[in-house]
Amino acid sequence: MILRQFLHSDPVGISYLFGCGGQAAGAVVDPVGDIQPYLQAADNAGMRIHFVIDTHVHADHLSVGRALAAAAGAEYVLSAEAGVSFPHKGVRDGDVLPLGNVSATVLHTPGHTPEHICILVTDRTRADEPWFVFTGHTLMVGDLGRTELAASAEEGARQLFKSVRRLKELPDYVEVLPGAYAGSVCGRRLSGKPSSAIGFEKRHNQAFTIEDEAEFVRFMVAEIPPAPPEAAKIRAANSGAAAAAA
């Protein structure tokens, strides 16, 4: 298994390169900014990038996913629920992205946005059980993602409640690799630590511990932070809607 984490400060976010070193098959998750570091990291690891995955249509930055996919000769992966206007590999819940001895299973986890996906990763050279999950802005260290950027806050929270229950069903040892950390506009109580585990978040993440749906919705719609500047325009640009309207 190869795993590289990229921490960004403007905007605050986390990207990843992961995959099978033995069969030189890799993927990038939620790339931000200059595409060259991902290409260089893959080259340094002796891997070819097969997939570039965005966990959702972002509202806090312009995605470079398509540009990176084009440069790497990879497939650009986004949820089939995204409704975007450009060619891509649309994935649905349960789909598996093959990467040699590593497999990446898609979990549809709406709430932060309706199309949001998480990626559950297994390295079959070590075990048949999942090892870690890329959670994007659904589950982050210390908090969950805000719910009003692409739907009403209440509807997003109801969807997120169901998604959170799915993540809670994962074994406690599964590592949580989120798409943001402290300083991101997509959460309220985020930790500066950029990784965690399902079991630790079940014990110490206040939003993640709530079991009653009505209580969960009330909690999630309280104290919503200011929206990212031009969030709607950025989401439109990342979905191709802005280009289509031009």
Score class of each variant (00 low, 15 high):
49 I>Y: 04
142 G>V: 05
244 A>R: 15
27 A>W: 06
159 Q>V: 00
148 E>C: 00
213 E>W: 00
241 A>T: 05
246 A>P: 03
178 P>V: 02
139 L>N: 11
98 P>E: 14
131 W>K: 14
49 I>M: 09
232 A>T: 14
12 V>T: 05
53 I>L: 13
73 G>R: 02
175 E>F: 09
231 A>M: 05
164 V>G: 02
92 R>P: 02
199 G>E: 09
204 H>Y: 13
48 R>I: 03
91 V>G: 13
109 T>W: 02
132 F>H: 13
215 E>I: 10
105 T>C: 13
89 K>P: 00
69 A>M: 12
199 G>L: 10
161 F>E: 01
242 A>R: 08
100 G>T: 00
235 R>H: 09
152 S>M: 04
221 V>I: 15
228 P>A: 09
149 L>F: 03
105 T>W: 06
193 K>D: 08
134 F>S: 08
183 G>D: 06
81 E>D: 15
224 I>C: 02
59 A>F: 08
174 V>T: 14
60 D>E: 13
158 R>Y: 02
14 I>N: 01
218 R>K: 06
8 H>I: 10
101 N>D: 13
226 P>A: 11
214 A>T: 11
60 D>Q: 09
217 V>H: 01
221 V>A: 03
9 S>F: 07
77 V>G: 11
212 D>Q: 10
205 N>S: 09
34 D>F: 04
214 A>S: 11
62 L>H: 12
66 R>L: 12
65 G>L: 10
132 F>S: 08
164 V>P: 00
238 N>I: 03
94 G>Q: 13
23 Q>R: 15
94 G>V: 11
6 F>M: 14
110 P>R: 13
57 V>D: 11
167 L>W: 06
226 P>S: 11
195 S>K: 03
110 P>Y: 09
191 S>R: 07
148 E>T: 01
76 Y>T: 03
169 E>L: 07
243 A>M: 11
109 T>K: 04
168 K>G: 06
177 L>F: 04
7 L>H: 01
166 R>G: 08
217 V>D: 02
243 A>S: 14
51 F>W: 07
76 Y>V: 04
176 V>N: 06
137 H>R: 12
36 Q>W: 10
196 S>V: 02
162 K>L: 08
48 R>N: 10
9 S>N: 11
63 S>D: 13
221 V>R: 00
62 L>V: 10
182 A>G: 07
195 S>V: 06
225 P>S: 10
79 S>A: 05
183 G>W: 01
52 V>F: 01
86 F>D: 14
233 K>V: 10
182 A>F: 06
238 N>H: 09
188 R>S: 11
103 S>Y: 09
131 W>Y: 09
25 A>W: 01
8 H>V: 13
188 R>K: 14
123 D>G: 15
239 S>I: 05
192 G>P: 01
181 Y>Q: 05
150 A>W: 03
246 A>E: 15
